[in-house]
Design a protein around this nucleic acid. Structure first.
Lengths: 216, 216
DNA sequence: TCCTTTTGTGAGTGATTACTCACTTATCAT
DNA sequence: ATGATAAGTGAGTAATCACTCACAAAAGGA
């Protein structure tokens, strides 16, 4: 894991984060082991060992083990959620030209697919640990309920008013759209990552499936 | 948690299982705490405490902590997977009379929904722990790949040959069918169990969504 | 009743845990 | 170069961990 990658991932606010080599090693080792065996089953001594660092060094930078987890998960969740409908996505499609729902779905799916591809370990950690740590649950709820859901909702309502989508409660529709996508991402990267995947074909089937299910 | 319920749940083979009150208490306590805080974060001392039992009693019946986990998870997975297309389900629809795919989906969804409702804790444990324990993963893979998947596959092929389903790789189609159902079950019982759910309406939307997405 | 087997006990064990702290080393502005 | 601050160290600590074992109580068959 590259230090520059970590620095970019962990940058939550706009302020730059400086990482010494050892600090980057700690984060990289923690991400690896947390993803492998889970937070609770991971010993700080093991993280220190894999990072090539004294155990005290970890606690120099993170007051407690849980702070290390949050330092990984927090920016992970934010990067996972925030850019979903970011900058040149919804805006492009809505304000400039309209390529249809399938084009929007395609952009959305490939965007999150690529994110998942580059962050499998963190994805795994988030999925595994959010159930047990209220802090993580709160971060997810905040970023999802405040960033992701409203934008999807707004988009869906827009299409609904244009008469392109069938009548369905927004939450139900969002779940119907997100579930198969998440289902694909999870099987693709977590459940069966070693299978041979015809990703383009899968995505097209996915788009067709979702589209048929939601259009008027 | 009732002793009779536990005895029924844990019955994997046909042989009856006798449980003393203390044994039932241990299992009930373990299910509770494992679901609450995860396997690795659960101390055997805590299980003993909540079960009202000496710590030694746990190890009298389960050689190691992991055996206690497996004693809970194994029958849970089997009951979750095996009866999916059991006895009077596929057979009824195929051999006797044909009520259409929607009727099949409806039966399937309500069946698994009711199972989830009665086994939320175990469902949570399985979902949380299978990633870290190869034994659990194997049990799931075996029961899914040998029991569930072939039956769904057979059913799907049947409908496909009748010209009722669109062309799509079987695995992709199964995933497209299962993902939204699982998505609903997970949000219904794990993510947002306290919300007010119009279950019947949700199920009908779900059926309509899936159906439109897969039919020719 | 008596003997055998099963079930239950709880103090005890060594290993491991997250975390501390007095200390050394490196970084950097002046 | 010098002093101040930050980064890094590793032996040490109390608590907790999963698990053991010698023993007691209960159950069950004769």
């Amino acid at each position: 894991m590259q230090e520059s990658y970590l620095r970019e991932l962990l940058k939550v606010d706009e302020q730059e984060i400086r990482l010494t080599e050892k600090q980057a090693n700690i984060l990289a080792a923690a991400i690896e082991i947390f993803a492998e065996k889970g937070y609770a089953a991971t010993a700080t001594s093991e993280i220190a060992k894999r990072a090539g660092v004294a155990e005290g060094t970890i606690f120099r930078h993170y007051p407690a083990k849980k702070d290390l987890l949050l330092a990984i998960v927090k920016p992970g969740v934010l990067k996972l959620a925030v850019p979903v409908f970011a900058s040149n996505m919804v805006e492009n499609i809505f304000n400039r030209e309209f390529h249809g729902i399938d084009e929007l779905l395609r952009t959305f799916i490939y965007n999150r697919l690529d994110f998942a591809r580059q962050n499998v370990a963190i994805l795994r950690i988030v999925l595994q640990e959010f159930a047990f740590h209220p802090e993580i649950k709160m971060i997810i709820e905040e970023s999802f309920l405040e960033q992701v859901y409203p934008r999807i909702k707004q988009t869906v309502i827009g299409f609904q008013e244009a008469g392109l989508l069938k009548e369905m409660p927004i939450k139900t529709m969002v779940r119907c759209i997100v579930s198969p996508i998440l289902g694909f991402i999870v099987t693709r990267f977590l459940l069966n990552p070693d299978a041979e995947w015809d990703e383009a074909q899968e995505v097209e089937h996915l788009i067709d499936f979702i589209l048929k299910g939601i259009e008027a």
